[in-house]
């Protein structure tokens, strides 16, 4: 199949779309492989290849991501762009490829963004404190099956940033809420639970991310199908923490 690609090229602060023709694209290629082939051509021609983030190419690392025709990770639901195959596109189609656009994700080059803001949000509270030494037995503290399931659903988040990219407000709330829910459902997450909600949500704002208007757009593009129920949960923890609930449990004493 042949495709027309409009790719965002950026060096420094200003960028623009550049048109490329991708010829004889195999429908079995992944989207990133299609870009690899294009880059090979560009290198042979002596031009600079298109920079984009990628690592595992198995949909589990959260490194890759670009907005394809207005949808983060492209038209296929519940998948990352590395797992998106060219069979989901039509011969002769025109494709617009853009980087994640958010104040919190500065564009480094072309489609490559600096997503370290998400790491700093994790550092602000997305962890539990444990004593070092011998690892505790997994079954030492019983966890209800239903809680474990909900926790694991949220723990699927790979931190790819598609929620931020899709949100009309550029909010990172689904990411933050997934971490809060993941740890909040487990006994190990309880001691820091209240302070975690306050710290992570405040940090996300500091990093320049927006707020949640409950558009539910993030849920629709999340490659791991994380539910916005996690956001309601994060809001609940934040409200309880702010109003002094569980002051003894790390909440804010008012």
């Amino acid at each position: 199949m042949n495709l027309t690609l409009n790719i965002w090229r950026q060096k420094g602060k200003i960028g623009k779309f550049v048109k490329y023709q991708a010829k004889d694209v195999s429908e079995h290629m992944s989207f990133l492989e299609m870009l690899d082939v294009l880059n090979q051509e560009l290198i042979l021609k002596g031009e600079e290849p298109v920079h984009f983030d990628h690592d595992c190419r198995e949909g589990i690392c959260g490194t890759c991501g670009m907005v394809i025709n207005g949808l983060p990770h492209g038209p296929l639901k519940g998948t990352t762009v590395c797992q998106l195959h060219m069979r989901h596109f039509k011969d002769g189609q025109e494709i617009w490829i853009e980087p994640w656009r958010s104040r919190g994700f500065p564009i480094l080059k072309d489609l490559m963004t600096d997503k370290s803001a998400l790491d700093r949000i994790i550092q602000s509270g997305g962890f539990i404190t444990v004593r070092t030494g011998q690892a505790a037995k997994a079954e030492a503290i019983p966890v209800p099956k239903s809680d474990a399931e909900l926790s694991m659903d949220a723990a699927e988040c790979i931190g790819c940033g598609a929620c931020v990219a899709s949100c009309p407000n550029g909010s990172a709330m689904l990411f933050v809420a997934a971490k809060i829910t993941h740890l909040g459902f487990l006994p190990q997450g309880q001691p820091e639970r209240m302070q975690r909600a306050i710290n992570m949500i405040t940090k996300a704002e500091e990093e320049g991310f927006g707020f949640c208007s409950n558009y539910a757009e993030c849920e629709a593009v999340c490659p791991k199908n994380i539910s916005i129920s996690t956001i309601a949960r994060a809001n609940r923890d934040f409200i309880r923490a702010s109003f002094g609930y569980g002051a003894g449990k790390g909440g804010k004493a008012l």
């Binding site: 617009w96 550029g170 757009e217």
Partner: peptide, 23 residues
Amino acid sequence: HSWNSRPQKYAKIRYREADIAAR
């Protein structure tokens, strides 16, 4: 705050869930 969170707009944008009432 929301405007500040996305200084540069997308050239193409499609919505799956965000309905017209919300937007």
